[in-house]
Design a protein around this nucleic acid. Structure first.
Length: 906
RNA sequence: GGGCUAUUAGCUCAGUUGGUUAGAGCGCUUCCUUGACAUGGAAGAGGUCAGUAGUUCGAAUCUACUAUAGCCCACCA
């Protein structure tokens, strides 16, 4: 084996072997118990970021573990067509050529996006391979592929026919840059340092004044959006506001336009805020829109799609950008004497979650899904426990949202996406919703033009298709079943649906998870998954979200390059917790890299000692025969291995990925490397020790494989655990020994504890050596005062081992409790004495003993307090009380020893 | 405004039905290049578990309040 582990070479070698041999592929026909997961499809424009790395590491750990545990395991990959994001990317590319999408026309533009997808859309799926994801690539899907598109059209039509989809004039969030409506949750509100403009609206009939006060009688309106003024159709006051009661029924003049608008009363107005008088602009504010509906006000839309003003804003402002218009209107108001004053105001402004442009509220015709009827059974599924959130607290947040759910605006004014399957008959205006283009109008009987123009959007077509596309989530919410072939009745659906686990970050619970629940229940009659595993977000060392604009992102590919994919995965698993966000910085990944190195070096050690290992290729497992005389250390490692196997399975069952990683890490590093390998070097029966080492190492490799797939596969082959053509992916995940096996091997808790105690004695001796600065190479004389004769006998049997670990020429074991003129350190076994002629610093030793005495006495005191408390004795479980008594006896014994020592050093 | 979460060692975090005087990794200090491994080994220092009050024989753990931080939802024109 090479001196250094070449992670790059191993990772480049194994992934294609795994993929090409179909190790990730799952077949329903193979039967067994299904375990299935669908990947949260990353945007096809995406590049792998730390969030993906964390999300997919968790999934791959679960998936590989289940697969090794014998489940028929499917992890289904794919990408999302990501409407706005992808369209933006291609539009940006076009811009470099000096073109806009309109220059190409719809068809050519969409073709161009497909071309882009073909060329660059594979980036992220390639990068996912670098991570080691064991996804079934033969099943890779795309939310805009043929099958998914069919599912989308069917779902739209079904919901429409069920009356759950409707088209309505509605105030929506509008991104002028993307030129599309946005759902409420696609708008991010951010603090903004803005202004509050106080504007005078003259009351009709009031006399004109002089010197900058053009009207004697006016109402003062405060607004943050002066540019929407030409769209005002009323001013409103609170009905209970006596200050303005006299104004009700009157009209005021809208400055700059001269239009008369009414003063109305509405509860929406907050008397305390601003002046208590609000301008009402129904076409440009969601609240004003509702007020307008209540009062039957006109809705004047003064803005174009791109955020510029239209002719309704007035000739002067028509064509101006909204910000320019704001300046112009403010200037004109001032010139006209309408502007009273300006105040600073901190408020919140909505931004597009994709392009970050300031979002405009705007009146338009959009398609909506009625969510309440879909939400109810989805709430019930979680309430009943049929679907479980892990951690459970997310269910509260889910309920909170679901109970207050709003209708979902699903139409987007984009070109890239699933076209809405709705057509208008140009003869009679009938709206026809149909999966395929209609040929005959159900109302007027008109038929499609016999020479249908090739262009689907040709004005010559009789049936004009709705130009809008669907929100990208309208395809993602079908992901768990559209990817398995729905609406066909496929074997995949039959076997793998519902999926077992869904693993995702908290930020898309509403966008995606909740909607998948609704779609799954509505269309499949079963929730799409059993467990929803929510993990935190990856943050930088200061706890900030990683983002491009902050420049604080870590690039997983760079980390893979520097530390290896295994290191990235293991470190992420080790530092992540389902309960909170994960802070990472580069140095964390050294943990994983160092661990891989450790595994490699331990493997090299075994390889160098190959001659010691009995040739037993048929049975690399625990040798059952001829091993009845296992030494305590050998029993200890087998016992520890059994504990580790049980622990890891148990923890993964509970989705405790982090604790599982820690358990494997500790077993491998501390138990195997630090102690057992050292033991094996000088074992009384080297063949036996190495056979056991070989066994536990192989188990450890398999326990580790879900976390570190590459190095475990490489080492398993290097050490001959696997032959060519075999893979650790399909090796059995260790479960732990049966009681019979344990009994046969003599593995008991008692022997495990004994070895742990022996190690404490060794550690105590090492501490003494360090404290007295004994030459590390020097052999010393050691005396161990065991607590009792039986322990002493046991320790005598370990003499060679103790000598080796303590680097001692003599280890004398006694149990007489006699004074020894040497310093000691207390251990469970008693006292360890080190012969140090002439090295003792009596004063220092006295101080140390005094400190220890004080501590021990304090301990005894606290135990006495408990034991003398009648309530404690009466209420505490017997085991606890007994434990306290035993502990007390030990401590009293130690105090006696310490007192003797204290006298010696006095 | 409504809701959720966190606060434990210098840092990042464990601590799963309340039960020995609280653990890990990193960092730090000292020593060690002895043939698996310096991406290593050995030893060590370091915490009144945010605060207050309560429940209990017993609280890092349960309850209430307070402080601080963060997140989500709704949003003031």
């Amino acid at each position: 084996m090479d001196k250094r582990y070449d992670a790059k070479a191993a990772e480049a070698k194994w992934y294609p072997i795994w993929e090409n041999n179909g190790y990730f592929h799952a077949e329903p026909s193979e039967g067994g118990t299904p375990y299935s997961v669908v990947i949260p499809p990353p945007n096809v424009t995406g590049i792998l970021h730390m969030g993906h790395a964390l999300n997919q590491t968790i999934q791959d750990v679960l998936v590989r573990w289940r697969r090794m545990s014998g489940f028929n395991t499917l992890w289904l990959p794919g990408t999302d067509h990501a409407g706005i994001a992808t369209q933006n990317v291609v539009e940006k590319a076009l811009k470099k050529e000096g073109k806009r999408r309109q220059d190409l026309g719809r068809e050519a533009f969409v073709a161009r996006v497909w071309e882009w997808k073909k060329q660059y859309g594979g980036t992220i799926v390639h990068q996912q391979r670098m991570l080691g994801n064991s996804t079934d690539w033969k099943r890779e899907r795309f939310t805009f592929d043929e099958g998914c598109s069919k599912a989308v059209a069917k779902v739209f039509c079904q919901l429409y026919n069920e009356g759950l989809i409707y088209k309505g004039n509605y105030i929506v969030n509008w991104c002028p840059r993307c030129g599309t409506a946005l759902a409420n949750d696609e708008v991010e509100h951010e603090p903004n340092h803005g202004h509050f403009w106080y504007i005078r609206y003259p009351v009709v009939g009031s006399a004109k004044g002089t010197q900058g006060e053009p009207y004697k009688d006016y109402v003062m309106v405060a607004t943050t959006r002066p540019e929407t003024l030409p769209g005002d159709t009323a001013v409103a006051v609170n009905p209970k506001d006596e200050r303005y009661a006299h104004l009700l029924g009157k009209t005021v003049i809208l400055p700059l336009t001269g239009r008369e608008i009414p003063v109305i009363a509405d509860d929406y107005v907050d008397r305390e805020f601003g002046t208590g008088i609000v301008k009402i602009t129904p076409a440009h504010d969601p609240n004003d829109f509702l007020v307008g509906k209540r009062h039957n006000l006109a809705e004047i839309n003064i803005m174009n799609d791109d955020g510029s003003m239209n002719e309704l804003a007035g000739a002067k402002y028509c064509g101006m950008d909204r910000w320019k218009c704001r300046e112009a209107i403010v200037a004109d108001l001032e010139a006209g004497g309408f502007l009273d004053h300006i105040e600073d105001l901190d408020n919140q402004v909505g931004h597009c979650y994709r392009c970050h442009e300031v979002v405009e509220s705007r009146l338009s015709k959009q398609w909506f899904v009625k969510m309440k009827p879909l939400a109810e059974p989805a709430i019930e599924a979680v309430k009943s426990g049929e679907v479980r959130f892990v951690p459970d607290r997310w269910s509260k947040i889910y309920f909170n949202w679901m109970n207050n759910i709003q209708d979902w605006c699903i139409s987007r004014q984009l070109w890239w996406g699933h076209r809405i399957p709705a057509y208008t008959c140009s003869k009679c205006g009938e709206l026809i919703v149909s999966e395929t283009a209609p040929t005959k109008c159900p109302k007027c009987g008109a038929t499609e033009n016999p020479d249908i123009p090739e262009n689907p959007d040709s004005p010559d077509r009789v049936f004009q298709r709705d130009p809008d596309v669907l929100d990208t989530w309208f395809s993602s919410w079908l992901w768990p079943f559209s990817t398995m072939g729905w609406p066909e009745k496929t074997d995949d659906l039959n076997f793998y649906y519902p999926t077992t686990d869904l693993v995702t970050a908290q930020d898309i619970i509403f966008f995606w998870v909740a909607r998948m629940m609704m779609a799954g229940i509505h269309f499949m009659k079963k929730p799409p998954f059993k467990n929803i595993v929510i993990h935190g977000i990856v943050r930088d060392a200061q706890g900030r979200k990683m983002s491009k604009s902050l420049g604080n992102s870590l690039d997983p590919l760079e980390l893979i390059d520097t530390y290896s994919a295994d290191a990235l995965r293991f470190s992420l698993a080790l530092i992540t917790s389902l309960d909170c966000d994960t802070k990472v910085d580069k140095s964390k990944f050294e943990i994983g890299r160092n661990f891989a190195t450790k595994i490699w070096n331990a493997a090299r050690f075994m390889e160098m000692n190959r001659s010691e290992i009995p040739d037993n290729p048929e049975n690399p497992e625990i040798p059952g025969e001829g091993f009845s005389q296992l030494s305590p250390d050998e029993k200890h490692i087998l016992y520890a291995c059994d504990l580790a196997c049980r622990k890891v399975n148990d923890l993964l069952e509970k989705y405790r990925i982090q604790d599982g990683a820690l358990a494997v890490y500790d077993f491998f590093w501390t138990q195997i490397c630090d102690w057992f390998v050292e033991y094996a070097k000088d074992a009384p029966d080297k063949a036996r020790a190495f056979a056991i080492l070989r066994d536990v190492y192989w188990k450890a490799l398999r326990l580790l494989h879900p976390y570190m797939p590459f190095v475990t596969e490489e080492v398993a082959h290097q050490l001959g655990y696997l032959k060519d053509g075999e893979t650790i992916l399909k090796a059995e995940f260790p479960k732990g020994l049966s009681d019979e096996e344990k009994a046969k091997l003599g593995l008991t808790e008692e022997i495990y504890d004994f070895v742990n105690a022996k190690r404490e004695a060794i550690t105590a001796l090492r501490a003494l050596r360090a404290e007295y600065k004994v030459n590390p190479a020097a052999f010393v004389k050691v005396t161990i005062d065991a607590r009792d004769a039986a322990t002493a006998d046991r320790l005598r049997a370990e003499e060679a081992n103790l000598k080796a670990f303590m680097r001692a020429e003599v280890v004398e074991i006694v149990s007489d409790g006699a004074d020894r003129a040497m310093p000691g350190t207390l251990t469970k076994l008693g006292t360890v004495y080190l012969s140090l002629e002439g090295l003792i610093d009596k004063a220092a030793e006295a101080k140390r003993v005094a400190a220890e005495l004080e501590k021990t006495r304090g301990f005894i005191k606290s135990i006495d307090a408990k034991l003398s408390n009648e309530n404690f004795v009466a209420h505490a479980p017997a085991a606890i009380v007994e434990g306290q008594k035993t502990k007390r006896a030990e401590l009293v014994e130690n105090v006696a020893r310490l007192e003797k020592l204290a006298k010696l050093f006095a």
